[in-house]
Design a protein around this nucleic acid. Structure first.
Lengths: 206, 206, 206, 206
DNA sequence: AATGAATGAGCCTTCATTCAT
DNA sequence: GATGAATGAAGGCTCATTCAT
């Protein structure tokens, strides 16, 4: 009642984020701003002030997860074991997506658009940290050759998608991740059989 | 096929399908019936007569690809080499999705809802044929244990998704498919690093 | 197979009428021509050939009832007892409406529009016969003065409406008809109290 | 009344009601929300905000008449003369319908559906007040036996219908009302001709 | 005659966004 | 800043009617 306008606004912002997060978690991926306003018992105008577009709201929702991910990526880059670093990195990217649909949406989408400054920054920090991990893996020869950073990024997003389209995603995380990690690991495969030729090249047993 | 369509009706139907396919291929995944009508220079009613819902149209678009896929799956089941059968099977599933967004939508989606008879039938035939291939592979011990038919289905859809969210999907198909196939192959992995337990164990220490 | 075209058409016509009647009786008062065509497994065109407009169909449905009504009205005009004639006349008009929604629609509606020849004729015959009955009643002084033929017509339609808007119309027919007939009977009321002044004029007991 | 409407919103609401009332009075019983919006030179959304369904609009239009009717019914129940109370009650019910087509629609329709709270309340208040009047009349023996409250309700609605389907309804009100009131009055009828049995008996002979 | 495909006006409804209060 | 009423483009869908086959 004094003049804590900032506090007021901040409280509103958190309120909106909480409600939006709840909505998304409940599976309401449309996330209509009008709807959020109504649920939050706040005028639409207020929502628009804080989040001028649906995308802005989604990015705001994803911010926390994205920040955490950056930390995890940096931690991964400091890990002693190079391959374990890769595992930590990709597992983190996967887990964040499974846990947070807003983040999944942001990360599966190109950096284009009119992204938030924060999101752009996160994206760059994440790329940088990931680059370190993956480059080390390549140097060490533990990462299957021919896969770019983007490829790995896409593959993890694909794995998250694979989890989403089935029941009980969380129960399947480890299984699917294992498949991915083994798939991208530089194989002590008997040389011949990587690349496109795979279909006819046969390994030891058939 | 069901009812012998009148010549003009058949022509219209094909016209609509062609235009709808074009729209989807251009990336217009919304595929609004009104829009299709306008593009086809046809009354809305005509579109609704042929395809009472968006879903019906998408399924009609996917029909051809789905039929082909069933054939390919059956061919896979007849292949001499068991593992090659798996490769053919999954590669086919992936290729159809990359080539046809409508099919990708149908196949990534549960069988529920009020699906077309044709679609339902295709789905069953596909499942049956795939089951044969995968079961043989399990018997032969070439398929990584613990993966259900559904898991593999989801993983291929995830791979298709991974291709979609990057540039030039077609150029990356083989690379991503290789990763997947190696990931699901029963490994003569060198002990340490297989099994689900690996990562958690390591993380605990990190 | 010879060339019984007429027979063919006639059969179709009856078929359509039967189905339309069923539809109306089931409470589908919209009576959409497309719908009738579908139910009759006949092309829309066929329906339109026989009944160029919904109204034409409704009138055709009502024809039988209307013809019967004319007979009943003529019978009423021949009845020995003048007042009984009135009762028979109005009861018939009411019963036809309760039994046949199509007829109720036709009879509650002015003669205007582009009515069928048959309907117009029926309407005239009915009016003529009713006029006889009612005029006799007026001459005999048994009909409340001040009520025109049209008034009585409207009042019966109103009674039919009163039956329609409640449950179990048929069970209430006699009750409502009794009210109407007593209301229009020339009262051996004690003179004073007919006309608008009613509200304050009181009869014997209050 | 429920929520203190913003000045402009209230103005709009009244505007819409006025225009809708005009439309109905002109005989446009369809009362399409789009149409009202256009006539009012207002966005469709505005209409939908105030009246989410056609029914809501009709009920809003009827509110005033319904409230008045409740008052009139209560006044009727307080009248010294029992029969006069009945006359006042039914006359009021009839007049409101003739004056207001929206009210006529609401009152001729069952209480089911998703009615407005206000309407539901009015309906209950009206029923209660009417019950008092009619029960007193039954006790006093001035109301024809065998007629339920609903019967009387229906009969008045029927009378309103009878007025609607002819020209110059207002000029015929008293005439028709007189018929109804005499019809439902407990008759000191001269024996022969009262009771439901009368007509059938006679018809048997005809 | 019969058919039923095509037409398209037009109703219903939602929702992102603006802006007066 | 907050509010929420207003806006209206746009999509969904139905159905009376026409007309080529």
């Amino acid at each position: 009642m004094t003049t804590p306008l900032r506090a007021d606004a901040a409280r509103n912002r958190e309120r909106l984020l909480a409600i939006a997060r709840a909505a998304m978690t409940e599976g309401d991926l449309a996330l209509q701003l009008n709807d959020i306003a109504r649920r939050a018992k706040v005028g639409v105008g207020t929502v628009y002030r804080h989040f001028p577009t649906r995308r802005a709201l989604v990015e705001a929702l994803a911010d926390g997860a994205f920040a955490t991910l950056v930390d995890e990526a940096r931690a991964a880059s400091r890990h002693d074991d190079v391959w374990t670093g890769v595992e930590i990195l990709l597992r983190a990217l996967l887990l964040r997506q499974v846990a947070d649909p807003a983040f999944a949406e942001v990360i599966s989408t190109g950096p284009d658009q009119d992204a938030t400054a924060t999101t752009t920054e996160h994206r760059e920090q994440w790329s940088a940290a990931a680059r370190v991990v993956l480059e080390r893996a390549r140097q060490a020869g533990v990462l299957r050759p021919g896969l770019t950073d983007d490829d790995l990024h896409h593959l993890v997003c694909g794995t998250a998608f694979a989890l989403r389209i089935g029941d009980e995603p969380t129960l399947r995380i480890d299984r699917y991740l294992r498949v991915l990690l083994d798939g991208i690991h530089a194989a002590e495969r008997n040389g011949v059989n990587s690349g496109t030729a795979g279909l006819q090249a046969r390994r030891a047993r058939s």
